[in-house]
C-alpha cells in the first residue's frame, strides 16, 4: 500500500526558477535557458572519478540523484563507462596512486569530451597542495585539460549540476567550431 500512497503525494522535486533563494538553483535555471537549442542540449552523460577527495564530493554527487534534485530532469545521467561519457567529473587532489587511472579514464573517452573539476581539492590541491602523496600540486588540470572548475568544500548538488551544464555549453562550442571548419 505504501508504494501506492506515494503516488498521491505532491512531487518532492525542488522548483527551478531564476527567482529562487538558493543562488545555485538560480544559476541552474539561467544555464538551462542558455543551453536550449545547443548540440548537447538534451542530455549529458557523466562518468565520475574520485582522484583523491575525502568522499564528501561523492556524497553530493550521490545526492544529485535524490528526488529533490533529480539531475536526470536536466538531462544529466551518470554512466558506468568513460566510453559512454561526454563529461568526466573529477574530484581531487590527484594522488600519485590515482594519476594513471585518471589519465586512462580520460583517454578512454570519445571526442567531444569535457572535464569538470569538482571541489577545492580538484581545483587548487586544497589542503594537500604540498603533500608528498599528490601529483605536482594536486590540481586536476595538471593531469587532464579542465573545462569547468567548481569550487566548494564540497560543492552542493546544485553547484555540481550547474558545473556539468556549463561543461555542456563548452561541448556545444567545440562542436560548433568543428562544423564551422569542415
Amino acid at each position: 500500500m505504501h508504494e501506492l500512497s506515494a503516488l498521491l503525494r505532491a512531487p518532492r522535486t525542488d522548483e527551478i526558477s531564476e527567482e529562487a533563494t538558493d543562488p545555485a538553483i538560480r544559476k541552474v535555471a539561467a544555464l538551462l535557458r542558455r543551453r536550449s537549442g545547443g548540440v548537447f542540449s538534451r542530455s549529458i552523460h557523466v562518468r565520475m572519478v574520485d582522484a583523491g577527495s575525502s568522499n564528501d564530493v561523492e556524497v553530493e554527487e550521490g545526492l544529485m540523484n535524490a528526488p529533490q534534485v533529480d539531475c536526470e530532469r536536466f538531462g544529466i545521467h551518470f554512466v558506468a563507462s568513460p566510453r559512454h561519457a561526454d563529461v568526466l567529473l573529477v574530484s581531487g587532489p590527484v594522488t600519485l596512486n590515482m594519476r594513471r587511472a585518471l589519465e586512462k579514464t580520460y583517454a578512454a573517452m570519445a571526442e567531444p569530451r569535457a572535464v569538470v573539476a569538482a571541489g577545492d581539492g580538484a581545483c587548487t590541491g586544497g589542503l594537500f597542495k604540498h603533500s608528498y602523496a599528490v601529483y605536482k600540486s594536486g590540481r586536476v588540470d595538471e593531469v587532464v585539460p579542465v573545462s569547468v572548475h567548481v569550487p566548494g568544500n564540497p560543492p552542493s548538488p546544485y553547484d555540481l549540476v550547474a558545473g556539468i551544464l556549463q561543461a555542456g555549453l563548452a561541448l556545444d562550442k567545440k562542436e560548433a567550431a568543428k562544423s564551422g571548419k569542415s
Partner: peptide, 21 residues
C-alpha cells in the same frame, strides 16, 4: 590506498588548533 594523500604527515609541524579542517 589509491586515495593516499599523506594526510597524517600534512599535520606535522602545525598548531593543534589549526588542523581540524
Amino acid at each position: 590506498f589509491y586515495l593516499h594523500r599523506g594526510l597524517e604527515r600534512q599535520a606535522v609541524g602545525r598548531h593543534v588548533q589549526r588542523i581540524l579542517p
